[in-house]
Design a protein around this nucleic acid. Structure first.
Lengths: 74, 74
DNA sequence: TAGTACTTGGGTAATTAGGGCG
DNA sequence: CATGTCCTAATTACCCAAGTAC
């Protein structure tokens, strides 16, 4: 019994973990600064550390990566 | 470890790294615009940055390079 | 506490997208 | 039909110094 109850609160927000600007940049093959611009323009949501550094949700990053895959099919 | 479950998603799409249009163009000795046309015609799969720029899979590019530049022997 | 690697911010070059022409 | 080139607008890359992450 006592199966892990689905708690969707803070854990849900960070499900899959967070990524640093450098990690996201490598996935898209762009400069970390470019990822920052995506966040500033609202194309990618971001969290901030208490020191002001940005962190990105892995779930969202992967979703965007998938959404921009091979969209040239015609 | 790392259960190798057939994950044909983001990991697969970016495994091996991505290339910029300029890098692919240099390999084939063509204009970057030509590479763009290959992508538009479906000859080469591509992925887009959130800004709309294309990125190409290194694996596929190298595979096409070998498959298309070896013939024409005699 | 110190040390290294990374991120932020702003500015300025370099690429790329897209259409059209030859 | 495929490629290269010219054009403009947009996106991205590299430069710096100072602060943060671990």
């Amino acid at each position: 019994m006592a199966a892990p109850v689905e708690r969707r609160t803070v854990e849900t927000a960070t499900a899959g973990g967070l990524m640093t600007p450098a990690e996201v940049a490598k996935l898209f093959r762009v400069d970390p600064k470019t990822v920052t611009r995506w966040a500033q323009s609202g194309k990618l949501s971001s969290l901030r550390t208490l020191g002001g550094h940005r962190r990105y949700r892995r779930d969202e990053v992967e979703r965007l990566l998938r959404a921009n895959l091979q969209a040239e099919s015609v």
